[in-house]
Design a protein around this nucleic acid. Sequence first.
DNA 1: TTCTATTCTGTGAGCGCTCACAGATCCTTC
DNA 2: GAAGGATCTGTGAGCGCTCACAGAATAGAA
Lengths: 340, 340
Amino acid sequence: MAEPRTRPKRATIFDVAAEAGVSRGTVSRVLNGEPYVSQSAREAIEAAIEKVGYVRNTAARNLATQSSGAVALIVHEPHSVFVEDPNIGAILLGTNAALSEADYQLVSLIIDTDRDTERVVSYLGGGFVDGAIVVSAREDDPIADALQRLRIPTVLVGRPDTAPELPSVSIDNRTSARQITERLVATGRRRIGMIAAALDRDSGRDRLAGFRDALGDRFDATLVVDVPLYSFHAGQEGMRALLDRAPDINGVFAASDAIAAGAVDVLRADGRRIPDDVGVVGFDDSAWALRCQPALSTVRQPADRLGARAAELVLDEIRTGERRSGVVLLPTEVVWRDSA
Amino acid sequence: MAEPRTRPKRATIFDVAAEAGVSRGTVSRVLNGEPYVSQSAREAIEAAIEKVGYVRNTAARNLATQSSGAVALIVHEPHSVFVEDPNIGAILLGTNAALSEADYQLVSLIIDTDRDTERVVSYLGGGFVDGAIVVSAREDDPIADALQRLRIPTVLVGRPDTAPELPSVSIDNRTSARQITERLVATGRRRIGMIAAALDRDSGRDRLAGFRDALGDRFDATLVVDVPLYSFHAGQEGMRALLDRAPDINGVFAASDAIAAGAVDVLRADGRRIPDDVGVVGFDDSAWALRCQPALSTVRQPADRLGARAAELVLDEIRTGERRSGVVLLPTEVVWRDSA
DNA sequence: TTCTATTCTGTGAGCGCTCACAGATCCTTC
DNA sequence: GAAGGATCTGTGAGCGCTCACAGAATAGAA
């Protein structure tokens, strides 16, 4: 932290009061939109604020109200994913918008290593934030646990089974996956495989479950490969494995667009035409989807709205003190393009 | 902002003083690492801090020191770029790391619309941050101007010509562009074109200048096309235009990897082999580079170090009160792969 | 021993704000 | 025309910390 610095003195609530010819209390009242202020006083104060160029000092306010005016967005992903994953950026943007609307400050905390976990937990214990949003929590996430212990209003993005007490906002991965797979079925594909990923998260598991739902009796576990990451490379590897097991495969559901792009790459290298020989569908509607040749059919998830909704829920709990547990599911949209 | 909330009472500096049998002043001294504290007092206080679980209240400290303990990272890009551009995420991460090391809080502000500009300027005027880092400032950027007026310590990432008084950290775009183009020349290409972008920023202009440097007399202005964005689509369009103008082209320098990927796409669709018929090089060493077929030769820029260095400079100015203007150039690295 | 430097410690004031309370003013209503 | 309620306003205390100052303790030199 810094040595104190001298900056041009800012006007305080005192200056405003003097200028308007009223007391601090009255100024504070109009600042906070409280009732019981006369019209004339209100106008005088507003004019005075304008005149002296007053802006509120957050530190003082936070000290007096015993709150921080900040909400943490905790992203539990390695740096590489943080940089690459389009959804995370969109969630961040959505959260930021909703929070600043309500005059709250977003503080983003990125957890990469175990050391970060510790640091973040102690930061959270410091009362620096009034609430928290956790993105991509794992099962038994120590952060979620800590947040619960500290009784900090928290909302999860995604829906980990481990912390059902915590409210969360998510998309219906299962139904979405079922819908897009069904369309694959409807176009006459009979040998349909899936490249699944992140089975340690609910999102990954639910996409697999939806795939299974759509196939019903025809589901064949040997046509499911599990890759470690939502990445292009993982998609390539997954597709090669699938091709090994079932050379006659004619439909593929990839757990993300990046994976689908990898799969498309391998399929074309293998001389197969898309969608004629093999239909491929993805998930996310990220930039990958349009970048593929042909453009990918996929599921669009409203990542920014996910972030915004989470922020609203946290704000609500901060204000009312009441936790509304439960899962908020935001609608997705299946986008049909040319890959299937 | 919130109604006050009751949270379990936290220990204050008072509790620590009582526990250790000393006064507040002495506790404050050890907290701030000041001299003139006896060994015994220091030990007693440290034990007391541990025992009562004390953590410092930032709001109170900020109020007393008249500083905020926060540094803003201002990103002047449309949301889409923010989400897509790998460099921005890396800069953010680097800044965050350097700042939290020094116990400062990163506050990221994203400017998308003109309304955002206004809001951010007033936010900045509110004394919420002790310093600022501006990413992708434009020429005549109103934010940079405001920051100067408010006399807030500021460092630019990138090197806009308009605010030479402000210190900045950047890469040497011109030399890097020259180096990678020279290699294109060295492999025997004679008809070399460039897909340039963002010529309203120094980065874009410098890359073009470096290209020109490398070609010397052989530079042919008709082989330079200018595209509006650092994107895949822009790359496709740019390449088509280049092909129209010079069907015999055999070397292409793209101003970014995304553009290069678009160019590669068009070239292959046109039946040209890479690197045999046409050599292609990019810039950034982003995820695009490895994703291309064949993998792209490109310039790696240390985006995270850019962010970290900017943070260090801001911190330094905050602490000393002295502005070190001038440009810090971080080294880049040309990465040779298979596309040229 | 006495005097001066040096090291250490406690105290009061104040940062800018909010909150609770007490008091003032105004309007109803009987 | 007085009582009672609603509406409005000012004041004091306090949030947790830092800073400047004054005073205490210790050490070293004369």
